[in-house]
Computed example of a mutant assay.
Amino acid sequence: MIDVEITFLLILFFLLIATLLPLLQHRHWTVRFWEFPRLILIFSSFILLCTEIIFLDLSKELSIFLIIVTSAILLYQTIYIVPYTIFYPKEVENTTERNNLIKIMTANVLMHNKNTKKFIELINKYDPDIIITLETNKWWEEELASIESKYIYNVKCPLDNLYGMHLYSKFKIEFSEIKYLVEDKVPSIHSEIILPSKQKIKAYFLHPKPPSPTENEKSTNRDVELIILAKSLNEKELPVIVTGDLNDVAWSRSTKTFKKISKLLDPRVGRGIYNTYNAKYWFFRWPLDHLFHSKHFKVNKIERLPYYGSDHFAILTSLELSTLQKKEITTNEY
């Protein structure tokens, strides 16, 4: 039994470190990474708890200690995830109305993915009104030229550094600007889009660098980009949508700070996690692709789309400008 107890102690020690590290106020990737795999840590601690109950001698104080600490880790990690389940109140109301509906596809296509045919098939099948593609270079731009007959409004920023992006829209893009908020060659697109109802919305598309050993060692630039954008949004009167691959998870400290400052809503709360990365490994996934919006919208549908060769799933979000908010917006001057 001693060998079994030592094994459980070692596993529990790892889970405890992984749980406590994100509490540190440090931006290094080795710390911030552990905000991501909370689902994996929940599953691991649950399996550990079950095996402890089965194999340990419950008459020993050490066994009880192991079970208590494992249970605490399981509960703590679960608290972060519960808001993104159907057991939690929805942050945004449902709507079945289809008036003033806007469907947005957010897709990190993976620059080296050559399966453009499958991606275009997804576009044709789900027929989004707006598409934002991330990691698109000049080759992807040429491959997607065929959709421009339907998506006649577009903004192109091809780059070969994994941070290119392209915006395609059926709706009129009245104004658009490519900005580099924090880092050179890491763009974001800031647009004003006119819906068929003649209502104007502000739309922001971004893809900051993640904290990682191959990108930025620390999360500082990503976090700063989110804060800069958030501060620019909290006084907006027009409807606002922010979407993209934020290289962050919905339950992280930085994403929560972004929501608090921007006053935007997360339609996933009370509906689901919608893990989009890694599309190639079902056991290693978390939600990196996000859409936030202002109070002006209600949710018609959120859908993670089928695999098309990227390491990210595309996500399709259908929002409707609510009747009450449309009346309020009509009275505002643009």
Rank of each mutant, 00 (worst) to 15 (best):
L206Y: 08
G244I: 02
S149E: 14
H207Y: 06
L238I: 10
I193L: 03
I201H: 02
N234L: 02
L233R: 08
F175R: 09
K198E: 15
A145D: 15
S149H: 12
F205T: 03
T243E: 03
E225Y: 05
K198V: 01
S176N: 06
F205H: 04
D184F: 10
K170A: 08
T136I: 02
I241L: 10
K179F: 11
R222S: 01
I241D: 12
I178A: 05
S212C: 11
L226G: 03
G164A: 04
E225S: 14
P158F: 11
H190P: 08
G244M: 05
K172A: 06
S176M: 00
L159A: 09
G164L: 04
K150M: 08
I227T: 15
I132T: 13
L144Y: 05
E177G: 03
I227C: 08
Y204L: 14
H190W: 14
Y153T: 00
K170R: 15
E142T: 12
E183T: 07
H166L: 13
A203M: 15
T133P: 09
L226E: 04
I193V: 14
Y153H: 15
Y204P: 00
K231M: 15
L206R: 08
S146M: 07
Y163N: 14
D184H: 11
E192Q: 07
D223K: 10
N221Q: 10
I194C: 09
I147A: 04
K156Y: 07
P213D: 03
P196S: 11
K185F: 13
K156T: 07
S232N: 13
Y151N: 02
T220I: 12
S149K: 14
D223F: 04
E135W: 03
L233Q: 07
S176A: 14
Y151H: 02
V224T: 15
Q199N: 09
S191I: 02
Y180R: 03
V186D: 00
N154V: 04
T133W: 04
P196R: 12
E148L: 04
T220R: 07
I178L: 03
F205W: 11
L229S: 06
P211G: 01
E183R: 10
A145E: 15
E143K: 15
V182P: 07
S232V: 02
N234Q: 13
S176R: 01
L226F: 09
K231S: 15
S176L: 00
S219T: 00
E174R: 13
I152T: 11
E174G: 13
T136K: 01
K156V: 06
E183W: 01
I173L: 04
H190L: 07
V224L: 14
I152Y: 05
F175M: 06
G244W: 02
P208D: 03
T214P: 00
S197W: 07
F171Y: 12
S219E: 14
H190V: 01
N154T: 10
